[in-house]
Amino acid sequence: MTLLASDGSERLQRAAVKGRSLWDDAGRRLLANKAAVASMVVLAVLVLLAMVGPYLAPFAYDQVDKADVWLAPLQAGHLLGSDALGRDLLARLLTGLRVSLAIGVVATFVSLVIGVAWGATAGYLGGKVDEAMMRIVDVLYSLPFIFFVILLMVTFGSNIVLIFVAIGAVEWLTMSRIVRGQTLTLKNKEFVEAARAAGLTRAGIIARHIVPNLLGPVVVYVTLTIPAVILAESFLSFLGLGVQPPMASLGNLIASGASDMELAPWLLIFPSVVMVLTLMCFNFVGDGLRDAIDPRDR
């Protein structure tokens, strides 16, 4: 009897101090970071606005109205005013936000896939292969980014899918370096040894054991890549190579706002505010995640 009872209480105790995983800890630290939590809330609102906003706006983003050009905010139902063609700025801003966020997410995903595959392979195989693969990365690094993208744009013409691919294809470089570094330390760990001893193939080890353990630094870098991509797209739009009008993106809204700023400063100010807010939130979340996942640095 006594044996059984003690057995039961022990089990109870074990349940009470149920171990916390690394991710539980990280989540707790992240939620304690006020800037990061506030940024996540703002980002959620922005994403929601970008998704449903264009349907709720009283005007279409490309609806031209010759009678209502250069309206200041709050005139004739245009909450944020209208532009040189009488298009509603609010509708264009919501569409632009949607396009910019989409580019940010898709291009980051492209860079994630290429970067993780490249870096993990190079790091795991090591030796000559590693050297050759990282040499290629070095060469691509010394190509000025903008040149690379401009060439892609002029080669294939400017369209939105290409912008995804072009920016993603440029942004994977840093990702591959981070992943390679992590892989180098991971591949000598016991569990990889065990997998190898159990007869798993190289591809299997990379996919099943290396990649999942890279997740921490990769997640952090992804949250910091999204704003970098949004910035890169706006930069291209500013040079006239990005998203083409009448389609809107935060970048080309700012670009056209900048050229009309003497006449209609609101066309510059509202898109700029949304852009800065978006970038700032991503950066806060990224910083928060880094501190949460890898608290050594603080």
Binding site: S234, F235, I254, M275, L279, M280
Partner: peptide, 10 residues
């Protein structure tokens, strides 16, 4: 942080 997030073209 503001400096990092405000692009030059703004």
């Amino acid at each position: 942080i503001l400096g990092v997030c405000i692009p030059t073209f703004v």
